[in-house]
Design a protein around this nucleic acid. Structure first.
Lengths: 258, 258
DNA sequence: ACAAAAAATGTTAAATTCGAACACTTTATG
DNA sequence: CATAAAGTGTTCGAATTTAACATTTTTTGT
């Protein structure tokens, strides 16, 4: 009964990331190793496993790994970002028009959004889809040229689009913040968009973890004076105190210990 | 400079599902095969590829396959849709402005897109992200109010956005097609968008599997006369022949047997 | 700028794994 | 019940891999 054997291997691969032909052969002593090989071929066709030298790797574990590496390995300070957006969600005001920036930080806010009537606008397609999934009725996705690396839309269309939209509260995630350069990002087109958002928003909330401090990237999209609230996970460097006080910025420091 | 070589291999794996050590060795004659092997080891650690006997498989293609098999189980006529979009990809013309409709059908076109310079515009955020992933430089995402059920944008913003864009070839997937009602969809806002696309496109290509025949949904967004090409998997019902001929529509029937 | 450490690379030969071919058995199918 | 299709076993030459050690290049700390 090949059937049963294959199913057993299949279910092994639900909990084991890797099996060798050798161990499977020992597990099923009444069939030859060649048969095991052929079983794995079948499972490979069904995308249950991938055949590698000496055995097979479970597809489930492979995709999990990929997810992990997308969501966390390449991303730094995941816990900090989580804590920051959790706090940011407290600033959401029902009925208001709220802008959410592109990027890994704001993407995490979805699960902290209370069940109320918000009107969201975002430049991040993944985030927009996430917001829809939790049943929010009013999700505006800014259109434009899509930049795959940054998961954001840019360009003239995006700018025009934003021109038509009113924003009460904007949540932005700069790539850098320094006393000299203010809030910065790595490229012009992204900065261009954020600049418009800042100019249109009544309340500007900047979200950033400590890795952004004293960093200055090529394009400044806002000065310290433009920010109303900064949410972060560590006290800002001392040399920024003057700027913060002068511009009357509220700095909220969250606890990111797990 | 190992750095550049690895990046080259990395980017090869964006468009190639599988590379062999042998071909890589020939591509980089000044390093030994052992070095290539070690490059792949690195890429494996970064989850870019999986090492298999003789070479490596691109992680992106692996996960795509999985996604396909997960979503396909619930979807109907997957094979037909695959065959249809594969054929549709033949109508893509490099350098043209191409519109791709929202929906599960067109979402499948990503892997059939040849490696050339296209300019795509779409109303489907997932599709847009997919197009970016394969490295297309020019992906326009139409903005607007996002309808999570249909994974599409609608509303006044989307309409205005489309107003600014020129379309050479439009690929659309109607929900129904009948002699009496023409091409139809289930809701007004979706139809509104498609109607604009049809009016702006030089060439209109309709993609639909047999399940759409003789179906008439609430909103008509195009008459038979608006279509230039229909790609489907079965001959249209006989009573449509008159309409097809009168409007000089090219009907292409694909083979969807696996 | 220098030395030490770390990373990258090359070469070899032995060990392992693979695959193709053919024969045979069991299970489906009309 | 006959035929086709799928599953299985065995063998051995071919291809691939690994390990180990030597050498070079790059990075890093002081």
């Amino acid at each position: 009964m090949y059937n049963n054997r294959r199913e057993q291997i299949r279910s092994m691969l639900q909990t084991k990331a890797y099996v060798t032909f050798k161990e499977l052969s020992e597990l099923f002593p009444d069939v030859s190793e060649m048969t095991i090989r052929r079983d794995i071929e079948h499972l490979e066709r069904e995308h249950v496993a991938i055949r590698v030298r000496g055995g097979a790797r479970s597809m489930r574990f492979i995709t999990n790994q990929v997810d992990d590496s997308i969501t966390s390995r390449q991303q730094k300070n995941v816990e900090s970002k989580e804590a920051i957006v959790e706090k940011a969600a407290k600033y959401l005001e029902p009925g208001r028009s709220i802008f959410l920036d592109s990027g890994s930080t704001l993407q995490k806010i979805v699960k902290y959004i209370p069940n109320e009537r918000f009107s969201f606008t975002t430049t991040d397609p993944s985030l927009a889809l996430g917001l829809c999934k939790i049943g929010l009725p009013m999700v505006n996705l800014v259109g434009g040229r899509l930049d795959g690396n940054n998961q954001t839309v840019t360009g003239i269309h995006a700018m025009r689009f934003l021109g038509d939209i009113n924003i009460d509260i904007a949540f932005l995630s700069p790539s850098g913040f320094s006393a000299r350069s203010g809030f910065t990002v790595g490229n012009y087109s992204e900065g261009e968009i954020k600049r418009i958002v800042v100019s249109k928003a009544r309340l500007v909330v900047m979200l950033m973890d400590e890795s952004k401090f004293d960093k200055s990237l090529p394009y400044t999209f806002a000065d310290a004076a433009d920010a109303d609230i900064i949410i972060t996970n560590r006290p800002l460097p001392a040399d920024m105190n003057g700027i913060i006080e002068k511009n009357n910025i509220t700095v909220t420091i969250v606890d990111d210990t797990i």
